[in-house]
Write a protein that binds this DNA or RNA. Structure first.
Lengths: 107, 107
DNA sequence: TTGACATATCAGTCCCGACTGAGATATTCC
DNA sequence: GGAATATCTCAGTCGGGACTGATATGTCAA
């Protein structure tokens, strides 16, 4: 398997734009946020469920959810019967876009 | 669109294992490493080509390549005609596994 | 209305990881 | 052999981001 490459390095290569994929990867690069997104794959959950599953404090989890919210990957609604609970669910369009960005980067 | 969720939070949820996807995401969460992987999508390159394309110093790029090497995503071989050059190429199997891990996380 | 529950916000601390500078190793050319 | 090129390694610095502690906001129940 011969490696094809000019004997003289090219100095005119331009770096592709990877900004979108990088910002998504930064979000997924934290265990708490990755776990949250994985748990949301099979339905919505409230903050305290993430906290107990992760063994993390709720304000900590809340911070991570804020990051995911600002990125548009999740959204929050109040529970209809128990209004104390904030129910988080994935924004499937945004998640699909994130998946595409990462897949494209590794294409 | 009604949110389905029990009025009492579940305390028995177990966090899924996301370790593989997280470590891949941590690698992609840096602009330099993401750019390197993207550039490698269309053929091998040497360190100095990444450095010029990124506007980064070569020892810096070398550090990022070491991280990618340790993760098994890339490998290095000497150039046949110009042995001073180290040619990096992607390990397509490892890249495919990384893509799968991320896609599964966002499934 | 008071208290408990669920979550958010904010300031402060701390640690990991990206970058720098310097020096070492490997290869080619003269 | 010695100079030049290409890359690596390592110690040190610095900033961003994750966590903590405390407090604020909103909701329900008695």
């Amino acid at each position: 398997m011969t490696v094809l490459h000019p004997p003289r390095p090219r100095r005119d290569l331009v770096a592709p734009d990877v900004a979108d994929a990088v910002s998504v990867a930064q979000l997924l690069g934290d265990r708490s946020r990755a776990t949250i997104l994985a748990m949301l794959a099979d339905g919505p959950h409230c903050v305290c469920e993430f906290a107990t599953a992760l063994g993390a404090r709720e304000n900590n989890v809340s911070n991570h959810l804020a990051r995911l919210r600002e990125a548009g990957l999740v959204r929050a609604t109040r529970h209809e019967e128990n209004g104390r609970l904030l129910i988080y669910e994935r924004d499937e369009a945004a998640v699909a876009a994130a998946r595409t960005a990462l897949s494209t980067l590794l294409r």
